[in-house]
Design a protein around this nucleic acid. Structure first.
Length: 190
DNA sequence: AGCGGGATTTTCT
DNA sequence: GAAAATCCCGCTT
């Protein structure tokens, strides 16, 4: 039993987001295994003016309207990729943005794709996609399958989770939909 | 430590 | 035409 049971993703993004903290992303490229713990996330859904899904399904955000447990990858600012875990009932247009991870194994492989050391390797949504070699060809990929899987991790106590406002948006600025593991050095901003 | 510009795609006005 | 779920570099305090 390696694969995680992804049933817990079939709930609203706001509820799923804190539950993803502590879970592990396993990425395999050219036989090299990389594992990283999720330490920071943000929730988005269709009723949120800051969400890509706010104005309905488009070719770009179609994955958000697909089944939970798939990966929504988007390209932004002309040079960066960011990845989300799709949540909620199908057609809900909800997802959780992975904002930061902590490398556990295969750090040398991460550094093949992103030349940086310490927290700077994976402490931002575009940084971790670069380090894990995540691009558009993984858009719509199921996290139950290789080469990118979601695995169970050490449970994170709710008292170690901080809920705060999201980063880099101009609408719905006050919503407390960003969650991180308090004190973790890989969090992009405490 | 903090501000500002550049890179350059998808989407909406 | 402009803004966007970002990051990096160079310049100024």
């Amino acid at each position: 039993m390696n694969a995680i049971n992804l049933d817990f993703l079939n709930d609203s993004a706001e509820k799923v987001a804190p539950r993803l903290l502590g879970c592990i992303l396993e990425r395999v490229v050219d036989g090299q295994v990389m594992q990283a713990k999720i330490v920071e996330v943000e929730a988005y859904d269709q009723h949120d003016a800051a969400s890509h899904s706010y104005r309905g399904s488009t070719p770009r955000n179609a994955t958000m309207f697909g089944p939970a447990g798939h990966l929504y990858v988007y390209f932004t600012y002309g040079m960066h990729y960011c990845c989300n875990v799709v949540t909620g009932p199908e057609n809900d247009g909800a997802a959780v943005l992975i904002r930061a991870v902590e490398p556990l194994t295969g750090t040398d492989t991460l550094q093949v794709y992103r030349q940086a050391a310490g927290p700077n390797l994976t402490n931002g949504p575009a940084k971790l996609c670069q380090a894990l070699s995540i691009t558009m060809d993984l858009n719509g990929h199921s996290l139950l399958d290789a080469p990118l899987r979601l695995l169970p991790g050490e449970p994170v106590s709710t008292k170690d989770i901080t809920a705060t406002t999201r980063i880099g948006i101009s609408k719905q600025k006050d919503a407390l939909l960003r969650f991180y593991i308090t004190g973790n050095p890989y969090v992009s901003r405490q």
